[in-house]
């Protein structure tokens, strides 16, 4: 049984308990143990390096040191946390000067990061520790004919030089996991493009228009959109709530999709909390 420290981040417990709930239920069903990481806070956000590179590295290292203390690797549900913690973890391990500089800062709060922790996205844990083949064997209600538009999200894949998640131009991990549920991951134009979330606080209209553009394309090809990041999810739901014309496209967190195929109910996976009605998905089970 694999065991990880769950790094929740800021947005999920405040806004998207449905993602937390579905991730935990699916992990339980698959035999992955998630231990809540005590004391951890914000990862620093991908914006922190725009203020100060050392601060961003120190904040990441501080969070990593908490998991190191518990002797556990970190699993993240949010792409923002993924980018920050995974990127700085690699940088700290590669650059002994940076690690020393950061540890001098951490020593002021009685901490040290030795560099023994691994950071993994939830999706990657499912892929590496369980795998699509085993998932297929565990399904109780596989989907039939459900077309899914997978959205990886920028910070699951990029910057690939440091994050090393999958091929950044032709990724397959999340598609494979979607296909394992019986659904079919469809290709669609600009699949790997940003959801617009990072500039929400800078230019809301532009941010919203980027999300709308993606959903408008995706709904031509798919019955549901699949995300594995709270920000991407909120963008794609949010842009369909006001000023949206035509049919809405349901959005599911990946573990919600998988959970349904494993035989779980809507409420168990928090799908009843989603803002876009997803009940038509049941027709494909």
């Amino acid at each position: 049984m694999s065991r990880y420290a769950l790094f929740l981040g800021c947005t999920i417990p405040a806004r998207l308990n449905s993602y937390d709930l579905s991730s935990r239920r699916v992990a339980e069903a698959l035999g992955i143990e998630l231990v809540d990481l005590e004391g951890a806070g914000c990862c620093g956000t991908p914006d922190m390096e725009s203020l100060d590179h050392t601060m961003a590295a120190a904040m990441a290292a501080w969070n990593l040191s908490l998991a190191e203390e518990q002797g556990l690797d970190i699993v993240v549900l949010c792409n923002g946390c993924h980018e920050v913690l995974r990127k700085y973890n690699v940088m700290l391990k590669q650059d002994s000067k940076l690690l020393k500089e950061v540890n001098e800062i951490l020593s002021k709060v009685g901490r040290e990061y030795e560099g023994t922790v691994e950071v993994k996205h939830y999706v990657k844990v499912l892929y590496d520790d369980i795998g699509p083949d085993k998932i297929r064997q565990m399904l109780k209600k596989p989907f039939k004919g459900l077309r899914a538009a997978v959205h990886y999200g920028c910070h699951m894949l990029r910057p690939s030089e440091l994050i090393q998640f999958d091929d950044p131009e032709n990724p397959h991990i999340l598609d494979d996991l979607v296909n394992a549920t019986g659904a079919v991951s469809v290709d669609y134009p600009d699949k790997l493009e940003c959801c617009g979330a990072p500039i929400l606080a800078v230019n809301e209209e532009l941010s919203n228009s980027i999300a709308k553009y993606k959903v408008q394309i995706a709904r031509k090809y798919a019955d549901v959109m699949i995300t594995a990041c709270p920000f991407c999810f909120m963008q794609y739901e949010g842009c369909q709530v006001t000023g949206w014309e035509g049919e809405q496209l349901p959005v599911l967190h990946y573990p919600q999709l998988l959970g349904l195929a494993l035989g779980m109910e809507f409420e168990e996976l928090g799908i009843n909390e989603n803002r876009i009605d997803a009940s038509k998905i049941l027709e494909f089970l």
């Binding site: 100060d52 050392t54 601060m55 501080w62």
Partner: peptide, 15 residues
């Protein structure tokens, strides 16, 4: 779980 926020503040101060 509660955040050790005093440590975050101290890091911000040190930086």
């Amino acid at each position: 779980a509660e955040v050790k926020v005093d440590e975050i503040r101290e890091i911000m101060r040190v930086v």
